[in-house]
Nucleic acid binder design. Sequence first.
RNA 1: CGGGGUGUAGCGCAGCCCGGCUAGCGCGCUUCGUUCGGGACGAAGAGGUCGUAGGUUCGAAUCCUAUCACCCCGACCA
Length: 561
Amino acid sequence: MRLSKYFVPTLKEVPNDAVVISHILMLRSGMVRMLSAGIYSFLPLGYKVIKKISEIIREEMDAIGGQEFHLPALNPREIWEETGRVEAFGDTMFHLKNREYVLAPTHEEIMTFHARNVVKSYKDMPQIWYQIQTKFRNEPRPRSGVIRGRQFLMKDAYSFDTSWEGLDKSYELHDKAYRKIFDRCGLKYFVVGASSGAMGGTGSEEFMVKSSAGEDTVAYCESCGYAANVEVATSRIDAAERDAESKSIYEISTPNVHSIDELCDFLVIDETQCAKSRIYLNNDKPVLILMLGNDEVNETKLEKVLGGNIRPAHPEELKDISGADAGSIGPVGFSGRIIADNRLKNANNMFSGANKNDYHIGGIDFNRDIPNIEYADLRIVQSGEGCPRCEKHLEVFPAIELGHIFKLGTKYSEAMGANFLDENGKEHPIIMGSYGIGVERVMACYIEQNHDANGIIWNKLLAPFQVHLLGLNLKKQEVSDTCAIIYNELKHNNIEVLFDDRDVTAGFKFNDADLLGMPIQVVIGEKKLKENKCEVKVRKTGERFDVELSGLMNKVKELLG
RNA sequence: CGGGGUGUAGCGCAGCCCGGCUAGCGCGCUUCGUUCGGGACGAAGAGGUCGUAGGUUCGAAUCCUAUCACCCCGACCA
């Protein structure tokens, strides 16, 4: 492809609205343009990458027996009523105004619809059906460019089995296929086992990559691969030590001391001697939560322990409940339910609030002074804490979900009456799995992980072109002749080549080449040409070397091999 | 939905507080010439209903009201 004829509107300046690096580079390299918030057009260069990713996905899905469909995005609303998901999705689902249609945010219902009409016998299964299709979700707040859009490409697959063992097998196949897909794409990813959430099911895994643009926070151990959403993650961390002797409790005047840090400074003690108090309302009943030092309450864990609804008490409510404002609340004399984090188990000689403004209490023995106390794991893990599975340490960071595999079970088949007859002529609901990959996210995450100050660094599998041929000063006959020969030769060797034949200065071409990021750059200039040589640059390492024209093709093949 | 911010040429911005003649600057674009291995130089050009609608005023990019769009933080997120 000749760049002079190719629509690749590169940008030197960073567009005002782009914040995350993948978004900036996708705009600057002329791969995408925004049409509206969370709605992007893919330009020729960007679409080429999308097609490469899709092809990798296709190959791996086909390899596990997947069959590709192309389903409508426009769906009758009544199909979605069958499973109650019109309500479940709520405002996230787009509705048409002039007909009872919705825009599909995913395709469980549609695949199940087709299955129930045709898949009637145990002999018809297993099946794996997939598609790569545009999904629509009315995200309240699109962000991070293509990473969270209102319209996005998703590979979604659905498995249909006659037994739970069959489902396990289908799930396993997808797990392996997903690893191959992300490996081939060159992504550094990890797998988080997650609770199945609102989809309803019995098992799921999320494929994540670390990214500052991420919307989930995960705890990850590089050493053993432990990975968990921070909402459920645990860690190895020391509990408070119990002194041999328990002092008796005593009240201390602590004017203007409101935080654990201030308390530590004021009394010259360590934060591990303090119990921080938080009051939550659980179904409108107050519960005192005690954390060691500055540990944060993990509300997801708390919710699991308490059941029902929880919310932090409003500042105005605190005094009624405890007799003090935030900063002076504590367990001694507190009348409601008290739950302490496991790190506080059996602790003694502790400091906490006195339930009286500007006073704290010292010498608290949790066993002696707080009857009816309960313990649970309630803390949010922090970077650097011990991995719960091995000897190393956890890292906590934001991450993006790239893919999700899911054992759906019979939720959709039961709701929609997708049943089959077994060997004995008995009817059962089909057992389903669902498996998604965000195609644009693969692209964006790749760029997040593979770029430098000058631009994108494509690997050969995702690169829109393998070779970027730069002809410097094409007004020189020998330069343009040589370029034409090399260009044709590369094409004849089935090497995808982008030929910068524009009449712009060398620096312009070099910078665009680095920005676009093809793996290999071949530079044809007057100087080197006098010695029958050209320059080859490897984008990833930045290394460059002179190559005899006669050996160029072999060198390129070697570098791409 | 709550908080903050921004809309002025294709892109990045100044001007707005304190209203005033023809709305500027850089990049990009067009033409000609010179250049030609890390975003060249000179000359001459094209391009804007200042987001939209209403209002105040002799006069509005500038002040007021409404509205729309976009960005950031939060809430939300199969």
